[in-house]
Design a protein around this nucleic acid. Structure first.
Length: 474
RNA sequence: GGCGGCGUACCCAAGUGGCUAAGGGAGAGGUCUGCAAAACCUCCAUUCAGCGGUUCGAAUCCGCUCGCCGCCUCCA
């Protein structure tokens, strides 16, 4: 089998994936900031991680996945200025920061469940790991790569950077950047590129902790370094995030992590592109207005339609959001669901698929191993179903189920849900009556029973010699 | 000022040197069907923003032009 290939931002090329300790893979993802709901653009990022994880598993790897919940230190502007975003929401809503974080964390979990995104093995909140961050900052200080000032502990970029260390990801030398030219920076900083590891003397800040340097709170970047090391080790295989994190957040994470441990921080950085409203216009929290998953559901779309919609484009391409494209994805979803539902027991329980299905499986795995080409994988899955219809040979359940381990549509569950044994007694009785009416050619009664079933929330789909009953909303 | 990306049919979107430019949606016609669906079959880009160049051969490489955008500040 061909090795799994993935684009590594560190090299800007598609590389063969070689984890440190195969078949184990350590994966860390920059998670949500919990002061607002996660919009559809955020959801695309989490869907990307989910499909990456599932594809790695299909390729034979075992993945340990950690994701952070940012509930402190995320500022409205530079690290040492502005207001903490969680606190801003807390003040606006008259809640405590913890209540705000809890609320939006729950909302996040609710949404990823709807999208059938697997929960990470470790979901870690920044505020639960303050001691870990303090220890890490101390190590950086001990190694001489940070300095303490009245306003905070800062990472010394000049000291650390050495030959091409900073700017490795973004391909920008520090001198080329305009840091400090576009906004005021703290006079305490030796260089405008320096960033806060720990912030001191901000009395208005609600969340404060004691530290060896005084009462304060962590800078935004340190949480990812501290928690990824704690749960996944000094060197992790894959670190994911949006492309917006390349120049600052991930650059700083590398600097602070490697200056602390002296070891490589990440083997593969993998970044997803944005979901955009129209070409080039990204959906973002700071823009004020942004579509949510709940908006799609209110508009009558199934959450999994959004899941398939995202798989219709490569993770590294901007994806243009439109109702028409979501509707197209929903058609795909219904197509898969209908295909699964109409498989007979002998087809769904056969130990072996028909030989012709093998080629589809190979193409599917190959597409995913080719830098996660989900559009191609999706096309293969659709072609498998179409080919099964065309041949009148639907012994492909094992293959389809394997595809679904990545697509994540729960086709097995959908099939079960359409089976008679699962129906409530009243529904089952109506179904039986309708079956009898149809065989008596009493179509007037059959149509009446169809209406009543629809009132109960079941869509009736007849075939020549049987019928299936699908709960509305799939 | 610097870094980076994009422009493929009505829409979404693969393809990055070579069989007929994937796939889906929409659209058109047909088959099947008590009805309503679903499904199946057929059709739907001589062409990849434009213009040059390299090559036996380019949507794919190079140059220029036009248009759009992201990042360098919080952001998936």
């Amino acid at each position: 089998m061909k090795p799994f290939q993935i684009f590594n931002t560190l090299s800007r090329t598609v590389e063969e994936f070689r984890p440190l300790n195969p078949p184990n893979v350590t994966l860390y993802s920059c998670g949500p900031t919990v002061y607002l709901p996660q919009h559809l653009g955020n959801m695309r990022a989490f869907l990307f991680v989910d499909v990456l994880k599932r594809a790695l598993r299909l390729a034979g790897y075992r993945v340990r996945h950690a994701m952070n919940i940012t509930d402190v230190g995320h500022m409205t502007s530079d690290e040492d200025a502005g207001e903490d975003k969680v606190e801003r929401t807390a003040r606006a809503e008259g809640k405590s920061p913890r209540e705000v974080a809890d609320y939006y964390t729950e909302l996040f979990l609710h949404d990823i469940d709807l999208l059938r995104i697997e929960r990470p093995d470790v979901l870690c909140r920044a505020t639960d790991h303050i001691p870990d961050m303090i220890r890490l900052i101390q190590r950086i200080l001990d190694n001489g790569y940070a300095y303490v000032r009245p306003s905070g502990v800062y990472f010394d970029v000049e000291k650390w950077r050495g030959p091409s260390r900073m700017g490795r990801l973004s391909r920008q030398s520090l001198d080329e950047q305009m840091a400090g030219q576009r906004l005021e920076h703290s006079p305490d900083k030796k260089s405008p590129h320096d960033f806060a590891l720990w912030v001191l003397n901000q009395p208005h800040h609600l969340m404060q902790w004691d530290s060896p340097w005084g009462r304060g709170y962590p800078g935004w970047h340190i949480e990812c370094s501290a928690m990824s090391m704690k749960y996944l080790g000094a060197t992790i295989d894959i670190h994911t995030g949006g492309t917006d994190h390349i120049p600052v957040h991930h650059e700083n994470e590398i600097a602070q992590s490697e200056s602390a441990t002296g070891r490589p921080f990440v083997r593969y950085f993998v970044h997803n592109a944005f979901l955009v409203e129209k070409p080039g216009v990204k959906i973002s929290k700071s823009a004020g207005k942004f579509p949510l998953l709940s908006d799609l559901v209110s508009a009558g779309f199934h959450p999994l339609a959004f899941r398939l919609f995202c798989f219709g484009a490569k993770y590294r391409s901007e994806l243009v959001f439109s109702d028409e494209a979501i509707a197209a994805a929903q058609k795909n979803f219904e197509y898969f669901a209908q295909f699964a539902r109409t498989l007979g027991d002998s087809e769904a329980r056969a130990a072996e698929d028909s030989p012709w299905a093998r080629e589809y499986r190979e193409r599917f795995v190959e597409a995913l191993g080719n830098d996660l080409n989900t559009p191609q994988a999706l096309a293969v899955a659709l072609e498998l179903a179409a080919e099964a219809y065309r041949r009148g040979d639907r012994h492909v359940w094992n293959t389809l189920t394997e595809f679904d381990s990545v697509l994540g549509l729960d086709l097995a569950g959908l099939r079960e849900a359409a089976r008679g044994a699962e129906f409530p007694p009243e529904v089952a009785r109506l179904i039986e009556q309708r079956r009898a009416a149809r065989s008596d050619r009493n179509y007037k009664l059959a149509d009446e029973l169809r209406r009543r079933l629809e009132e109960l929330g079941y869509e009736v789909r007849d075939t020549r010699d049987s019928s299936s009953y699908v709960p509305k909303g799939v």
